[in-house]
Design a protein around this nucleic acid. Structure first.
Lengths: 117, 117
DNA sequence: TGTACATATGAACAGATGTTCATATATGAT
DNA sequence: ATCATATATGAACATCTGTTCATATGTACA
C-alpha cells in the first residue's frame, strides 16, 4: 500500500495510475527487456548483428567487416551470446557465428522503420 | 582501400567479407539504430513507454506508476522526446505524454517474444 | 503582482560501459 | 612436445549514463 506521496490531491489521476500499475509487467520483465534493448544499443553490436543477418561469419571476418579490434569483437560477441542473440559452431580453430533466431531481424526491421522515416 | 591488416592469409573469407561490407548500412544508420535501441535499453524508460502504451499520462502519474522521482522521469522523457518516441500535449499546467507512433509497441512485442521464450 | 503548482533543466557524482593491452586457452600442424 | 593461429578473457582506463539536488520556467489563480 505505498500510496502517492507527491502531488497529493491535484495532479494525479488515480484510476489511471491504478489501471496502468496493474497492466505494467513486473520488475524482472522490465529489466530483461531493457537488457535486451541495451544489447542492441551499441554501434559495434549493431554492425555485428547486421553482418550476421547476411550470413554466418567467423570472428576474423567480423573484425575485417566492422573495422574494430578482434578483442573488441570478441568481448561484444560474449555479450550477444549471453543474451542468446547469437550462436556459433566450431570448425577446427575457427568459430562461425550466426544469429540465434529471427527475432533480431524483425527488431531491426522495426527499428529501421522508425529511424528512416 | 583499407584492406585487411590482420589474419593475413588464413582465416578471412574474402568474398564473404566483401559481400557483407557492401550489404552493411552506413555508419550513420548504424549509429541511429544503436541510439534508438539504447533509448529502449533502460528499465525506467521501458516502464515509461510501457505505461504510455495503456493510455496517455501526465508526468505526475508516471512518477506514481513507476516509482521514481519526478526529476528522473522528466530527464528520461526528454531523451524519449528527442528521439521522437513520445509526444505531449499541454492542458493548463499539466503535460500529457503519449507514444509518438506505433513502432514502439511493435518493438516491445518483438522484444517480449525473445525475452519470454 | 505574487503565490502555488507541474514540469524542466543544469551541475555533480557514483556506477556502468566499451576499448585496449597483455595474457590465456584451444585446436591443428610439424 | 612445440609452435602457430583463432579466439577468449581479465584488468585497467577513459567515457558515458542515470539519479539526485537545487534551481528555473511556465501556467493558473488570487
Amino acid at each position: 500500500m505505498v500510496e502517492l506521496d507527491r502531488c497529493e490531491i491535484n495532479c494525479i489521476h488515480d484510476e489511471a495510475v491504478q489501471a496502468v500499475r496493474q497492466a505494467l509487467f513486473g520488475e524482472d520483465v522490465a529489466a530483461s527487456l531493457a537488457e535486451l534493448f541495451k544489447a542492441l544499443g551499441d554501434p559495434t553490436r549493431v554492425k555485428i548483428l547486421f553482418s550476421l543477418m547476411t550470413r554466418e561469419l567467423c570472428v576474423c571476418d567480423l573484425t575485417a567487416v566492422i573495422g574494430v579490434s578482434e578483442s573488441a569483437v570478441s568481448h561484444q560477441l560474449k555479450i550477444l551470446r549471453t543474451l542468446r542473440l547469437v550462436k556459433f559452431r566450431r570448425e577446427g580453430k575457427i568459430l562461425y557465428y550466426s544469429l540465434a533466431d529471427d527475432h533480431i531481424e524483425k527488431l531491426f526491421a522495426q527499428g529501421l522503420e522508425h529511424v528512416t522515416e
